[in-house]
Nucleic acid binder design. Structure first.
Lengths: 112, 112
DNA sequence: TCAATTATTCAAGGATTGTTGAAACATGGA
DNA sequence: TCCATGTTTCAACAATCCTTGAATAATTGA
């Protein structure tokens, strides 16, 4: 993941509603959720959700597919994983202290 | 790390100049860098760097200390580690697929 | 083809964020 | 005390982002 992509991803996640959308889509899994379902769950207008979905898509954190009349969105696990990796390696310079901190704080990083 | 903190951190990292500052401070280590040094390195005005440093501090990604006439900034490894952890666990719901993706992409996450 | 459903695009306005130069503040040395 | 150095604060303006309702587009079933 290059810097431009990372900046865009951070911007996408820095908005409360968008973060909530990403969380919902991660939980929903590969099947995803229709735009309308997301709007209803969050008690937000279709217009507003659409705006944020477009923003998330622009950063590639989510993707869409059409299914009949609905447009289904789902989280991109690849992009999320890349962002974690960017944060650990590129941003944090692969700094051992940060890795150590993550581990000490019980991060789910190392299965062993 | 609570959501408010995470949102603030993502916002802080979503700005090109601020991301560059964090990177420089991570590399600089605990000794940190004076505000003036950062400004000079990046070819930016003191005013502008000060603005971004304040923003980063507000999100707790960096901290400052005075040393004679200089104000020295340094990265908070704890905050960065917490953010990685948030991204993996809270945002990504501890999703095994994301962990797997990070590992497959050669993330520096597991020493073994 | 017409109507209903699902969702996006557009335009306008408000809110927030980023940039700039001038002024102010804090520290240390002459 | 006075000046130089290092940095922040302030005020103004530009740019970007968010929200809203109205209009538009795509799909399906009658």
């Amino acid at each position: 993941m290059d810097e431009r992509q990372a900046l865009s991803s951070f911007a996408a996640l820095s908005q409360e509603r968008r973060l909530a959308i990403v969380r919902a889509l991660v939980v929903a899994g590969p099947e995803g959720l229709a735009a309308g379902v997301i709007a209803e769950r969050m008690g937000v207008s279709a217009t507003n959700v659409s705006f944020h979905l477009k923003e998330l898509e622009r950063s590639r954190l989510i993707s869409q597919r059409r299914e009949s009349r609905s447009i289904i969105y789902s989280a991109s696990y690849e992009a999320l994983a890349d962002l974690v990796k960017f944060l650990m390696e590129d941003c944090c310079a692969g700094h051992p202290i940060i890795r150590k901190n993550v581990e000490e704080r019980g991060g789910l990083l190392c299965p062993g």
